[in-house]
Write a protein that binds this DNA or RNA. Structure first.
Lengths: 171, 171
DNA sequence: ATGAACCTTGCCATGATGGGAAGGTCAAGC
DNA sequence: GCTTGACCTTCCCATCATGGCAAGGTTCAT
């Protein structure tokens, strides 16, 4: 229940300037699990509105930003695209949202996952069949190559393009 | 058994120049299922050695190249990376290969698929649990957002980075 | 002669992420 | 005071397989 909020400053215990004036990007990174690189990137995507700066130009994060970063992290871990996460963050911060709109996004993503899992399982089945048939010895004869070369009765039918399902993680 | 080899020239039945002097890239594309763009790309990757040209500079493909393209297509459909496919093509054309080396590549890819499928299934399970809990109505209260915000007992533990398993399809 | 349907090369975009360069800032230790 | 090291800043480039588009050449049919 209690959010784990280690107050020690970053890796070392050295607060850079004024003690509790907000977290630096490195500290925000350790506390959110999002890399500094990505925190800056998310800012350009508009996911963190109006990040404060210190006099020296360093970014400065408060509890609110940290929480948003943790939200993004969790959503990424569930495989949502940044576009979807942008929507989700918007809904999260909108008191007049409907749970239906959130559910719709989640369901679409779940459907997408299901489709990709299915496609990958089909590949896997074919592969495992071929691997099972292959002696794996010093001789050149290989049913795997035979299948790829089309010189064997194909074990499975290539249905869907790899690009769609493996390489284009989200539409 | 018989390889489907439609001999009609490309979409229309119009052989461009000399009747049977080899296929143009567009014809090679239709017969292999690989786009012309990708055929050129594979050539730069060194997968098609020494493609002949006509007097006008057009590429010209014989049965050998078409077969290689079909091989590549099939391997892509099984989810192999281009690096793996380069290896496989090399082995295919090497009479002194061992089936063990082919099997090793296939097994590594199968293992990779298994890892990714597992990770995606974990995401899917978490998502489906959350979706099940969400009313999906006009009210703002939403267990999905609660979970993402960390303000609920998390349903699953985010173990592996999305990047590794969803966005970086192959190593 | 014009247009259609091909072909050529070359550049740019995708999506999420990392790597690295070149340079600014700040505190601690000599 | 000066150096060192650990931060921070911005900007550019790379990944991977693929598509899109542009500018221009070729060939053939109307």
């Amino acid at each position: 229940m209690a959010i784990v909020r280690v107050v020690s400053a970053h890796t070392t215990g050295k607060p850079h300037t004024l003690a509790s004036s907000g977290l630096s990007i490195g500290e925000a990174a350790t506390q959110s699990g999002v890399s500094a690189k990505m925190i800056r990137h998310y800012e350009t995507l508009g996911l963190l509105s109006g990040v404060a700066r210190r006099n020296n130009g360093y970014r400065q994060y408060g509890p609110r930003e940290i929480h948003t970063l943790q939200f993004i992290k969790r959503a990424r871990d569930l495989g949502f695209s940044m576009a979807e996460i942008a929507e989700l963050v918007g809904l999260w911060q909108n008191r007049r949202r409907t749970s239906a709109s959130v559910k719709r996004i989640a369901q679409a993503h779940a459907d997408d996952l299901a489709r990709r899992i299915e496609a990958m399982q089909a590949m896997q089945q074919t592969l495992l069949s071929l691997i099972r048939c292959c002696q794996g010895d010093h001789r050149p004869d290989c049913p795997i190559l035979d299948d790829l070369a089309g010189s064997a009765s194909p074990i499975a039918h290539p249905v869907c393009s790899t690009k769609e399902l493996l390489h284009q993680p989200r539409p």
